[in-house]
């Protein structure tokens, strides 16, 4: 198990927790945290005890993107990320790391700029009722790109473009994020967020891990291809589960009114 300086990695039953832990910097991502993300996703993905991963943050912010004070402070600037970005060789979200376990993002408080990477790349997103969403990139001369491209595939695009062009001058509420389908649940009071995320994680963990991994691959392909092509790839994922022991265990457990014992 890795040790982390800027993240907290925990297990609670079948739920693996990945918690942003730079609360004094509103969980902004410095270079060290960026590296830790790459390791933490792989660690939780490789652990057979972990069936579902919840991602949230310590303090009053969920995530606020790249740590600009580090960029501005050490003379290296964005040059450190240039090669990775130009090759689109990123490793800080579950999608980047090809994690095929279900990922729940639980947004606590502020989600700004690069913080949207973990909203765009999660499977399920819930948020605390006091959450606020905004994207200040263009207000400081930065481009809005990868995270918004992902979001535009998952929700009405006008709202994403409005956030992109309004920059720091407007914030979206938890309620509007819910209306638009960016999040599926608003937890009130905010203090109940982690409890609800754990519950949701435990519920999802009752399902077949192999079927969920194939499902996640099939749905991810829907964001990559035209409809017919995506259905062809999805059909392959579907058929690949035929003959898997979970396909007999599922109906049997149902008939015997007990929890299924899935193959991991």
């Amino acid at each position: 198990m890795g040790t982390y300086q800027h993240l907290i990695v925990e297990r609670h039953g079948p739920v693996g927790w990945l918690i942003n832990n730079r609360p004094d910097q509103l969980n902004a991502m410095n270079a060290a945290m960026r590296s830790e993300f790459a390791d933490a996703w792989l660690e939780l993905d490789a652990d057979p005890e972990v069936r579902v991963i919840v991602h949230t943050g310590e303090g009053r912010a969920f995530q606020t993107g790249v740590d600009v004070s580090e960029i501005a402070g050490d003379g290296v600037g964005f040059a450190r990320y240039r090669d990775d970005m130009e090759r689109f060789d990123l490793h800080f979200t579950a999608w980047h790391q090809k994690v095929w376990k279900p990922v729940i993002t639980a947004v606590n408080g502020i989600c700004a700029g690069g913080g949207f990477h973990w909203v765009a790349d999660a499977d399920i997103v819930i948020c605390a009722s006091d959450s606020q969403f905004f994207d200040p990139h263009v207000s400081v001369g930065q481009v809005v790109s990868v995270e918004a491209i992902g979001l535009m595939r998952k929700m009405p695009a006008e709202a994403v473009m409005r956030m992109a062009f309004m920059g720091k001058y407007e914030r979206m509420s938890a309620q509007r994020a819910y209306e638009l389908g960016m999040v599926s649940e608003v937890v009130d009071p905010p203090e109940k967020l982690r409890e609800r995320a754990q519950e949701l994680g435990e519920t999802i963990a009752k399902n077949s891990p192999a079927a969920m991994a194939a499902t996640k691959r099939a749905l991810a392909a829907a964001l990559e291809h035209g409809l017919t092509e995506a259905c062809k790839l999805g059909a392959r994922e579907l058929v690949s589960m035929w003959g898997h022991p979970d396909q007999e265990e599922g109906p049997r457990a149902f008939a015997e009114k007990r929890e299924a014992k899935w193959r991991v």
């Binding site: 964005f78 990320y81 240039r82 970005m85 130009e86 689109f88 990123l90 930065q142 481009v143 809005v144 790109s145 990868v146 918004a148 491209i149 992902g150 535009m152 595939r153 695009a157 994403v160 473009m161 992109a164 964001l223 990559e224 291809h225």
Partner: peptide, 22 residues
């Protein structure tokens, strides 16, 4: 970058967007 999201698959659009960003 964002209008490019309507043109290509997610990974391809993200690659093109990453170049705009950098």
């Amino acid at each position: 970058a964002l209008w490019g999201a309507f043109e290509a698959g997610l990974t391809e659009a993200s690659k093109a967007g990453a170049l705009e960003l950098a």
